[in-house]
């Protein structure tokens, strides 16, 4: 039997104020994959994610579980795909538990309040991420890393299989970046599917089953991490030199620091 993609994107175009952001993007996401989207600033990674989540509208075909995106309401999408945004502060300081319970709203009837079951699911999600001790803390007072963990727990509470993350490690300190990557890798091995954008080819090598590179609004490579992330690709896309080395049986991407660099 042929494997069917959970998300498929065909010939997707998007322009913003006469500026062509995406010009014919194709992408497929299969169950159990961890796909890293790489590319320089402005290449259209975040735009692609927003299009898949129907946060903005473009031209082309997007389907979730074989059904065109047009036929999905936001409520339907939320019961297939969870979005983990780059955290931003809301002026209203909810507790961690309240933040996670918000992941349950798409499951509720219009007038229903979250039930004891919803709170239980939320608590379990916090346990799974290992942050149940933060439950009563105010979300706004957490560190960037803890906030990302809470948003991941919220995604788990949504009880979906597919997680879409927009630059999950942005703004995190070094330790939290690595810990978050480990967590994503762990959840991936449990069968969760990830589509995440990243600025770090090295992170893509560490935690992905597939890497998609975008540049200038199109996908330029799509394949296994060891095939896609090469010296040549780094030079073409980012205009710097890098070495791909083996370390502790992992491929790593190490940028080469040149003292005389042309102006950025």
């Amino acid at each position: 039997m042929e494997l069917k993609p959970i998300i498929s994107v065909k010939d997707l175009h998007f322009s913003y104020k006469n500026h062509q952001v995406l010009s014919g993007v194709n992408l497929e996401l299969y169950r159990g994959e961890i796909v890293s989207l790489l590319g320089p600033n402005g290449c259209g990674k975040s735009t692609l994610i927003k299009l898949i989540l129907k946060l903005i509208k473009g031209k082309g075909e997007i389907a979730i579980d074989g059904k065109p995106l047009q036929n999905y309401s936001h409520k339907d999408i939320a019961s297939h795909v969870a979005y983990i945004p780059q955290y931003n502060n809301t002026p209203f300081n909810y507790s961690v538990q309240e933040m996670v319970v918000m992941g349950r709203v798409s499951k509720l009837d219009f007038f229903a309040l979250p039930s004891a079951h919803d709170y239980k699911v939320a608590d379990k999600a916090l346990q799974k991420i290992g942050i149940e001790h933060l439950k009563s803390r105010a979300f706004g007072q957490l560190s960037g890393g803890q906030k990302q963990m809470v948003l991941l727990a919220r995604a788990i509470a949504q009880e979906v299989n597919v997680f879409i993350m927009d630059e999950p490690v942005a703004g995190l300190d070094y330790g939290n970046q690595i810990r978050l990557l480990e967590l994503i890798s762990e959840l991936g091995s449990e069968g969760y599917t990830f589509l995440k954008t990243t600025h770090y080819p090295d992170h893509a090598l560490l935690v992905s089953s597939r890497v998609v590179v975008m540049n200038g609004g199109v996908v330029i490579c799509d394949g296994a991490p060891e095939d896609v992330i090469s010296k040549q690709m780094i030079e073409d896309v980012y205009n710097i030199k890098a070495d791909i080395i083996m370390h502790d049986s992992h491929r790593r991407c190490v940028p080469i620091f040149e003292r005389k660099r042309e102006a950025i």
Binding site: K50, L53, K54, L55, S73, H74, K75, D76, I77, A78, S79, A82, Y83, P85, N88, T90, P91, F92, Y94, E98, M102, G103, V105, S106, L108, F111, L113, P114, Q158
Partner: peptide, 24 residues
């Protein structure tokens, strides 16, 4: 009062509310 659970999500901003399933 009946719509109050949606106000929590809306107060996170439009994108997050939509992604969590709200008809913003």
């Amino acid at each position: 009062i009946f719509m109050s659970k949606y106000f929590d999500l809306m107060s996170l901003g439009d994108e997050e509310a939509k992604a969590l399933g709200v008809n913003v």
